[in-house]
Every structure is written in structure tokens, then in C-alpha cells.
Design a protein around this nucleic acid. Structure first.
Lengths: 155, 155
DNA sequence: GAGCAACTGCAAGCAGTTCGCAACAGTGTT
DNA sequence: AACACTGTTGCGAACTGCTTGCAGTTGCTC
């Protein structure tokens, strides 16, 4: 599956140009769709689906195809710049690896709560000691019921 | 979304007939596809996808459609007899609610490790106190890297 | 055994994502 | 500045996992 050396931590990738430089280093090319996509990622809200990103990109370059967005997202993820997570049942959401965090998603109303990584350190330690398993708490959402829905339903 | 009183805990649902009785109580009918599906669930391995279950069912009743399997799984889940979980990217897996447990799934090799619920009590408590969020650790898998893949890759 | 409603198979449809392909466009070289 | 090399693109079709509409069937009650 993902067998990549995430090189992003060796470089500063805090701007669009930084990322493009990284892309170049890995033999990739700097294309306008790639640049616009990155700008959308840096400028937009934290959790964007491929479709949403495509829509944003298309406001500036209407001919960029959805498949191009997917391919670029895939490439950027391989370089370690991006991460995608599955929040509940819908489409995956993408965000910059730098701002990765964990999520609680309510199965009833779909609300997503961002959780600090510290909440998972205990679980991470147990998983490591019991099973030698290194968890990646960013990639998935923890499902459940949010405070509002618990209150609404009672019980 | 799921707004159901899981009645299963009020009843003993440890056999196929128990479940069918529960189905009847809720106005459902006892059909052969339903019975065969339940037998597959009780007899088969713990994690089965809808497709796998359909295949098993079809060995005994070749005309049972995949959509029927989905509809029955949905119904049984509404009654609280079943649970489905998303282990990684592929299709959902179904298993009896009685044997529910948490999972660690390796993103590299796909291996699934079953984890005791106790590992999640700390996280559950933090989520509750910090966010009023009641996690449901059974419904999702925690992704990461298993011991074997960690060892293989180094890092 | 008649009738109601739950259930069924079938086929079509859906969302999200991937793929094959021919055309196109960055990039290093000349 | 033209050239070739190869990464990238748009398009459309395919794919997976799942859902739905419909007309026919079947379990269950009276």
C-alpha cells in the first residue's frame, strides 16, 4: 500500500512554493492545476473533500478535471504533504499534514469535533505495548455520539 | 440516522431461533433467506462482508439477491443483533453485536488485530469529559501499522 | 384460504474513486 | 529557440459498494 518515505519533514513545506519545490525534487512538474489546488488547500477550510477542492479549483481553471484533482491529491499525499481522513460514511476529506489532528464524528448529526493528539497517547501506548501496533489516529475518525445528540435522545 | 432502541439486550439472542423470535416480535417475518443469512452469521467467521455472506447464502439458496442480503443486514442491525464496522478502505464487515470488539487495522498489509474494549476506556473517558462525546469504538477501526510491517520497514 | 403487508429478485441507479488513452505541456539539452 | 523526453492532463468509461423502485411472491393472521 503506501510505501513512501515522507520527505516533508526534511523540508519546510509551509507555503505553496515550498511544496512545489518538493514536487520538483521528486521529479514532478509544476503545473497550473497543481499550483491552484495547493493554493486551495492552503487557503481554504481545513477539511475539504476532493469534490469541494475541484469546485474551488474550477472557479479559476474551469477545465481541470476531477480525476486530475484526485491524481494530484494522491501525489501530494505520497510526498507527505497531505493527509486524507475518513470522517464517517461520506467522501474522504483532505488536509495538510502539518495541521493533522484527530476527530470525533457524531453518527447521528455528522458533527465533527477536532481532538488534540494527547487524548490518544494512552491508547497509542497500549496498542504499542500489547500488540506492537503503531496507531495513526489522524487517518480515521472515532465515531460515536456528540453531546448534543446524547442530550436530545436521552439515555 | 440510526434511531433505534436496540432491543437485543432485553432478549437472549444467542441462537438463530432467538433472533428470528425477535424479528417476529418487531413485526418482521421469518423467511428462508433471513434464516440462512443468520445461520451464516452464527456459523461463519467473525468478520464477513455483505458480499461474502451473500456467497455463503447462495450456496444454499442460489436465488437470494445481494440486495436482499443488504436489506436483511440492515434490518438485523436495526434490531441490535448485528453491527457493521469499517475496517480500512474496503467494504464493511458485519458481525454479531454480542461479539463486538475494537480493531486495529494495518494500512500496509491489511491485517486486523482485535483489541479488548479496555484499551479504549481511557480515550472514552477523555472524550466524555472534554467534549461530552460518547465514542463507539466498535464501529470503526483504528488504522496504523502492525508489528510485522513496522519491523519490515524499519523506521 | 383470503387478504394484508412484509419480503423478494431484478435491474437500474447512485456516489466516490480509479483507469486507459491520446493529446498536451513542463524541463533539460542542444 | 527548437527538440525530445516524459510527466501530466481531460475525457469518458469502468469499477466498487451500496441503495432504490417496482412488480411479483410469500409469511402470517383471521
Amino acid at each position: 500500500m503506501s510505501r513512501v518515505a515522507p520527505a516533508s519533514h526534511l523540508h519546510d513545506v509551509s507555503t505553496v512554493e515550498d511544496v512545489l519545490a518538493l514536487v520538483r525534487e521528486h521529479g514532478g512538474r509544476i503545473t497550473s492545476s497543481r499550483r491552484i489546488l495547493l493554493e486551495a488547500l492552503f487557503a481554504g477550510p481545513e477539511h475539504q473533500t476532493a469534490e469541494e477542492l475541484a469546485t474551488v479549483v474550477q472557479t479559476r481553471a474551469p477545465d481541470v478535471a476531477l480525476s486530475t484533482v484526485y491524481r494530484n491529491l494522491e501525489e501530494l499525499e505520497r510526498l507527505g504533504v497531505l493527509v486524507h481522513s475518513h470522517l464517517g460514511h461520506g467522501p474522504a476529506t483532505y488536509h495538510l499534514a502539518a495541521g493533522a489532528h484527530c476527530h470525533f464524528v457524531c453518527q447521528e448529526c455528522g458533527a465533527a469535533v477536532e481532538a488534540p493528539d494527547e487524548l490518544f497517547t494512552g491508547l497509542a501506548r497500549s496498542a504499542r505495548t500489547h500488540f506492537g501496533f503503531e496507531i495513526d489516529p489522524h487517518h480515521f475518525a472515532v465515531l460515536g455520539r456528540c453531546a448534543a445528540c446524547c442530550a436530545a435522545d436521552g439515555g
